[in-house]
Design a protein around this nucleic acid. Structure first.
Length: 598
DNA sequence: GTTACTATGACCAATAAG
DNA sequence: CTTATTGGTCATAGTAAC
């Protein structure tokens, strides 16, 4: 078992693709070509600016990681000294705002200092409407209306412009990029384009020194201004025509990805793009039914790997439609045993007695973070009690609609109820009481569970690692939540050697730590709170101490992608969901560091 | 302050209907 | 082919209760 034999599979995997540094024009990936959100990855080249850069490279790295340009950082440090990071940051932000308000200013593009491709020609729009009177704009938006409300109700392409604007680009730049790249272009494509345009425009222009330092604008004012610019853009757009190019990934039906344990049709081979090939292995997850273009963008960032869309209803009694982007082998997968019950009837046998014949459900819908109200179940009971076993169609439809929407199950005569937390735990493949105790409220249990992996599904995908890493793995777990990946690996019998787990919620960290202790794990568990604080230095530190990560798992926040969000379904640029870019940033960092080590 | 409870449609895409 | 209908969704915000 040990040693050489088990290495066979490993060697079949084509890790040794050294030369993946070929220039990729579109893909925002790979260490060499990309700057987006990724400036840190050039560490090894000693990107020392010729301009007598500050000695404190860590400090520079820190701000580079936040997306500011090296020149701006140098300037900010010069102004503020190295000691006061707060004031440096403030200066940097100020520069960005200045840039966006005065297009003449160059070089403050918060990203992409080193894009070289594209011949960035700009449309004439660049010169127009740059001199909009600000006071006018302020007046026109001075009503009590909330900016956020307005922006969230905008069409998607306009949101894209607004996103770019809020990233520090001018609306004119964003518009030009949109016109050039098409309305469905991803933010990555757009930023690439803008950067190229800026490079073209700013050649030979060196950083000017003294700029009047204005007080930092309030964020609301900033957005207000951008929104006004957006209105201008809309007016322009109505005149011209915009090519609508529809292109996008389609969800498979049935949603079984490369295969599920209960189906004989299993795909065992695929070809990964060279840039995607590890080490490390990575495994990224998010909701399948995201707004248009989101999965295209995710896939493009993650080295053009096609997502594997899987509905967990093929693994358990509840649906869970998710997309997974990973570079794992797909041959010889195996499921966790015992196979979990796959019908409501089997999973919740006590409901069978009360389950009416006209409720044809055999599976539950997606387990959410909130549950149906008591009022609703009472309304349903009242609606049903007038009738016998066979209520009229209208009533049946009403009841069924609500049951499907809220995942209600039958717990008594004419009585439906939401699932209990421990039932959700069981359906998702967690040990009973996994989220119980430790002072967590019932509401928060639902929330944590609703945001989690379905363990059997994930374990099936990760099962191929068992032969590859018989001695255990080092895991980097981003957005760990309640530890779905850790539980899956553990149940697969894959030892966890070193786990760096990043999770913002303290309650969730407590849950994972408690599980770690109860299952007598032999490895090390390192907990961090914020992915945004995880930089190259810390990663190198960890990786140096135990020799790199074997697997990077993460399901980034879906808040702004999920259909059930009525308020802020802003897509990948939403407040929480944009943390996807941190997943990519960290993955790419690890990839680069590992390449450097090997 | 924390927790529980409730009301709140939008968006997308698949499907049905015309 | 177009348009209408349907189904489904890792949720948020406000308010009351504790």
């Amino acid at each position: 078992m040990a040693g050489n034999t088990s290495g066979d599979d490993y060697e079949n995997i084509d890790w040794d693709t050294e030369d993946e540094l070929e220039i990729q024009n579109i893909t925002p990936s790979s260490c060499a070509s990309l700057a987006t959100l990724n400036t840190q990855t050039i560490v090894s080249n000693g990107e020392a600016s010729s301009s007598a850069g500050p000695s404190n490279s860590k400090l520079v790295q820190h701000f580079l990681g936040m997306g500011f340009s090296e020149q701006l950082i140098a300037k900010a440090i010069k102004e503020n000294g190295e000691a006061n990071t707060e004031s440096i940051l403030e200066s940097l932000l100020t520069y960005s705002v200045l840039e966006s308000d005065s297009p003449d200013e160059q070089n403050s593009c918060p990203q992409q200092q080193q894009c070289v491709e594209e011949n960035g020609e700009l449309s004439s729009d660049y010169d127009e409407s740059l001199c909009d009177d600000l006071s006018e704009s302020d007046d026109s938006w001075s009503g009590g209306s909330e900016i956020a409300d307005i922006s969230s109700s905008l069409p998607k392409h306009e949101k894209a412009v607004l996103s770019l604007a809020n990233m520090g680009y001018t609306v004119e730049e964003a518009t030009a990029a949109m016109e050039r790249c098409g309305p469905e272009a991803s933010i990555a494509e757009l930023t690439d384009f803008i950067c190229a345009a800026q490079m073209a425009k700013t050649e030979d222009v060196f950083f000017e020194e003294e700029k009047p330092k204005l007080p930092l604008r309030l964020n609301a004012d900033f957005k207000k201004r951008k929104l006004y610019d957006l209105e201008i853009w809309k007016r322009k757009k109505r005149k011209g025509l915009v090519s609508e190019e529809d292109e996008g990934l389609r969800l498979p039906n049935p949603m079984i990805g490369f295969g599920v344990p209960t189906d004989v049709n299993v795909i065992t081979h695929r070809t990964l793009p060279d840039a995607a090939i590890g080490p490390p292995f990575f495994y990224y997850e998010n909701v399948a039914l995201a707004p248009k273009g989101v999965w295209d963008t995710i896939s493009r960032f993650l080295y053009d790997v096609e997502p594997e869309f899987v509905d967990s209803k093929y693994f358990c009694a509840a649906a869970r439609k998710r997309g997974y982007v990973h570079n794992l082998p797909i041959k010889n997968r195996f499921p966790l045993l015992p196979l979990p019950p796959r019908t409501v009837n089997d999973a919740l046998p006590l409901t069978k007695r009360w389950w009416p014949a006209w409720d044809k459900r055999t599976k539950l819908n997606c387990l959410q973070t909130v549950i149906g109200s008591a009022k609703l179940t009472e309304r349903i009971r009242k609606a049903l009690e007038k009738w016998g076993d066979d209520p009229p169609q209208q009533v049946q439809k009403y009841v069924m609609d609500e049951c499907r929407k809220w995942n209600l199950v039958w717990v008594g005569k004419n009585k439906v109820a939401p699932l209990e937390p421990d039932e959700v735990e069981m359906l998702l493949g967690f040990p009973r009481n996994h989220t119980r105790g430790g002072g967590i409220s019932r509401t928060d249990r639902y929330k944590s569970l609703g945001n989690s992996f379905q363990v059997d599904t994930v374990a099936y995908h990760l099962s191929v690692l068992k032969d590859i890493f018989p001695n255990g793995i080092n895991l980097l777990s981003l957005f760990s939540g309640i530890g779905g990946a850790e539980v899956a690996l553990h149940r697969l019998g894959i030892p966890l050697k070193n786990v760096v787990s990043v999770e913002i919620s303290e309650a969730n960290r407590d849950i994972v730590r408690s599980w770690w202790e109860q299952t007598n794990q032999k490895g090390n568990l390192i907990h961090l709170a914020d992915v945004q604080q995880l930089n190259g230095d810390r990663l190198e530190q960890y990786m140096g101490s135990f020799g790199g990560f074997d697997l990077i798992v993460g399901g980034s926040p879906c808040n702004n992608l999920a259909g059930s969000n009525r308020v802020s379904r802003d897509g990948l640029e939403g407040e929480q969901s944009s943390l996807f870019y941190d997943y990519f940033r960290i993955l790419d960092l690890v990839k680069c560091i590992m390449n450097k080590q090997s």
